[in-house]
Each structure stands twice: as structure tokens, then as C-alpha cells.
Design a protein around this nucleic acid. Sequence first.
DNA 1: CGTCCATTTGACCAAGCTCAACCGCCGTGG
DNA 2: CCACGGCGGTTGAGCTTGGTCAAATGGACG
Lengths: 253, 253
Amino acid sequence: MMFANPLGIRRSALTRRLSHYLTLTEAEDRALEAAEERERRVAAGEPLVEASQPIDRLFVVQHGWLHSSVRLRDGGRQILRFHYPGDLIGVSSIAWSQAATTLTAVSDCIVSELPKVQLGRLFATHGRVGGLLYAIAAAESVAMSDRLTAIGRMNAIQRLATLLLDITARLRVTAGGVIDTIELPLTQADIGDALGLTKVHVNRTFREMEKRGMIARNGRRLKILDEPGLIDFTGFVDRHAVIATDWLPPLLG
Amino acid sequence: MMFANPLGIRRSALTRRLSHYLTLTEAEDRALEAAEERERRVAAGEPLVEASQPIDRLFVVQHGWLHSSVRLRDGGRQILRFHYPGDLIGVSSIAWSQAATTLTAVSDCIVSELPKVQLGRLFATHGRVGGLLYAIAAAESVAMSDRLTAIGRMNAIQRLATLLLDITARLRVTAGGVIDTIELPLTQADIGDALGLTKVHVNRTFREMEKRGMIARNGRRLKILDEPGLIDFTGFVDRHAVIATDWLPPLLG
DNA sequence: CGTCCATTTGACCAAGCTCAACCGCCGTGG
DNA sequence: CCACGGCGGTTGAGCTTGGTCAAATGGACG
């Protein structure tokens, strides 16, 4: 838990995110907060969990960015997803007792621990919350399908454009307001590993997008100049803004 | 439900698959069977659901193969996943009220319908089953990460090899026994759309694998000649064989 | 026997990769 | 205070993998 919690004040980023989608009962809120244990800090670039390491807990991102990745035999790397505040991460360890992916901090991070056993308890006693977690997992799975589609069937410019649009859309969920400028803590090598491109080609693609007036860069600050145009160009769909919860049953007694 | 169910006889493929991972109580078993509604047949090549079509239910594959895919602006297609008996599909409709992907029968199929509302009820009343569904979703998400990695960072031979290994591994869950020969109902164009390759290059890659003695083909019957070799060659990991359930709480009451 | 569709093959093309060098910024140590 | 080293970004030259276009083959089925 974050600490003794007079409802509404300084809750876990997970609880805050969930109540963004669904009004939680006091009991559900308390159960969620109680499931989380001590916090950990991870400095930018440091690993939180290494692939194939035994693990019995998940993590909730409270602050900062991380990514999950895998290393290949030949030294290559694929970045699978980025994780933002409010995300429940390390989910692959639910299905097995070892981590399937490496979790690495992109910026300085704060995460809190959520033991699998606590999650199991949560599913058993607050099934509605379980259902909501399932829905969020489904949405994230679709977001990953979008990345798969981009890598499988789009050229470099479209891949990069969808990534930038996706990051912006996800940040808006947490930040609330209207954002069109983002501070990218990623290196071009990171972006390449996420998009299935080399860092050299990521660089050329960035410059090409600038030349075409799609984006403007200033250091790692990046501004999307024509978002509707990019959305049309890539067929991007925002998977983060809304999630249906109408199918969850009304509160039990 | 399939029909009135004296436990153990002719249950839904979903119930059978779940009990492969976890011993279900009689109540859980009954609730699962009751959640499913009428069955539908879909002929090979026919769509079951079209992307962006409004939908309020999921489907359980009872028999046959399907795939989920998206179409691109330029006419291209990306196949995201294949679905086999025992799979709960159309999960993207949980997060929204319309389908995110198109579901198409690869072979002649039987599916049964599972309304979202029933799923919600299942989560609320049988949280342990909800947790198991969550674990399976997590495993499938990792399997999709593997495909992402293959498309993003591997060459054509490795991509095709991992796909063949993955299909074989998944079929073993349902079929039980030791399989090294599979009947592929997919065209080479389908395989290309799943791997981010053109059908022409899929063909060349198949021939190259034959030439190297990795596989043997006879019509659409395909035999993997050196499975350990291929596993080593690709770094393949079987994501289907086992799923941890130890974190789920013991039965309530 | 003809039609349709999947598979196969060839010739040529191009997006993105590799290798290599260079730049610019920043933190560190002398 | 400045020199040095390292990392990320930038750019060029040449190459490779896989794409494109087009045509031929072959099997299944009415």
C-alpha cells in the first residue's frame, strides 16, 4: 500500500487508473491498496527484473517509464512494450514462475510490489476488479497487435509515426490534458529495438519526418505538428482513451 | 451450454482446457458450461466477426481453426493470431463494444457464443476462474510477444520455423500426444500475412527449409524433421504446455 | 475438359542494413 | 580550466534480404 489511505488522497497509481474506468467501491479500493507492498526505486537504465529469473510478484508503476524486452541469441534486442504510471507490469510471471521478459527503467522510476498471491486473493474476493483487470489486459493486447501490424506490414515512417501517436495517447490518459509535445526519454537505439529497425535507420526516418513537416524536434523534446494528418497516414487507433466496463455486473450486495 | 451435463461427459472445449490447468469444482464447471450459449458453424474461409462491427459477445472455439486479422488501408493484411479448440476468442470486444479484429475460419469450425454479460457474472461469482482466464490471457500475450520478436528481429527462415514450432506446441495441448506432423489448413498467403512476408517469399522459404532438411512437406501435410535443431536455431520457447495456477487461492468454502 | 486457386519460378528492384567515420555534448579527472 | 573519453546522434557508400511483377505449373472439382 502507499500508506494509510483516507480515500481519495494520494492513492496508488493503479487504483487511480482503475477508477478512471470504473467507480470503485470503498471495499474494492481498500483491497487494491492493501495488495500492494513496499515501493522500490529504479534508476534510469537499470533492470528491475531479468528474463528467466524466478519471480513471484508483479509491479505497479507509480512514476517514470519502463520497457519490457527480450534479448536474442545474436545479441539483438526486441522491445515489446513501454510501461507508464498506473500500469500493472510483469504480468508474464502470472502464467509461469519465472519472468518471460526483462523489465528495464527508461527514466528514473518508482514501482510498488504486488505479490501474485495478493492478486489471486483480489480475483477471488473482488471479482469485479478482476474483470476490469482482464479488460485492461485485453486492451493492452490489442495495442500490442497494433504494434505487430506496424512492424509486419508498414514502412519505417509509418512505424515511427504510430509509435509516437501511441505514446502520446497513452500519456494523455495519465496526464489528462491536451498534449502535443512529449519528452522522449528513449534513445534512437531503443526506438529501433521497439520498431524492428536499426538505430541508423531510425535516425534517417526522424530526419525525413522533420523534412516532411510531420514533427519538430528539439533535443529529446518532440512535437507532433499534424496529428490528424499522421492519424490518417497510419490508420492509428487510440486504444487507451476508453475501456468498456458495462459488461461487469452491478455491485454485489 | 453444450447440453445438460453429467460432469465429465462432452463438455465445452473451454471447460476441458481450463481443467487441464486447474481442477475445477463442480460449481465452477457448471457456471462455465451455463455461460456459453448456442453454437454456430462457420465454413472455412468465412468470417465470424468483422472488425469494427458492434458486438456484445465472445466465442469459444469448439472445433476447427480460426485466425484474427486486420486489414490495412493499402489492401494489405496482418494476421495476428491463430485460434484453436478451447480458445476464448474475440476478447478485444471486452474492452470496447466493437470488434477490433476480424475473425475468420481457417477450416470448418464450430464455435459457441459467450455473451460479455455472462463473462462478467463469471468473474464476479467465480473469481478463481477469472484468475485462471487472466493467466491464460497473460500466456497468450507472451506468445504474441514471441511473434512480435520474430517479425521484428528475425529473418524469414527463423520466422517460419517459430511459427511451425508454435503451431505444433499449441496443437499438442489439445491433441495430447506426441505430434511431429501437422496438417496445415493455411495457404502460403495466410502464412505470409502472419509473418510479415509476401506469399512469394514464404514459398521460397519453405523450399529452402526443405533443401536444408529442416522439414518435409507433402501437400499440406508438414513434418518437422529436426525439432531440437529448429528450437535451438530459433530460440523458441513453448508458451502453451504449462501455466502456473499456484497463486490462485484455494477454494472458498 | 475447363476453371479456379494455390504453388512455383524467374528477373529485376528497393527499403532498410552494415560498416565506418565524424560530430557535439557532457561529465570527469588532472 | 581544459583535455579526454564516452555516448548518442548524424551522414555516406555499398550491400542484402525480401518485395514486385509476371508467367508457368499443377491439382481439385464441377
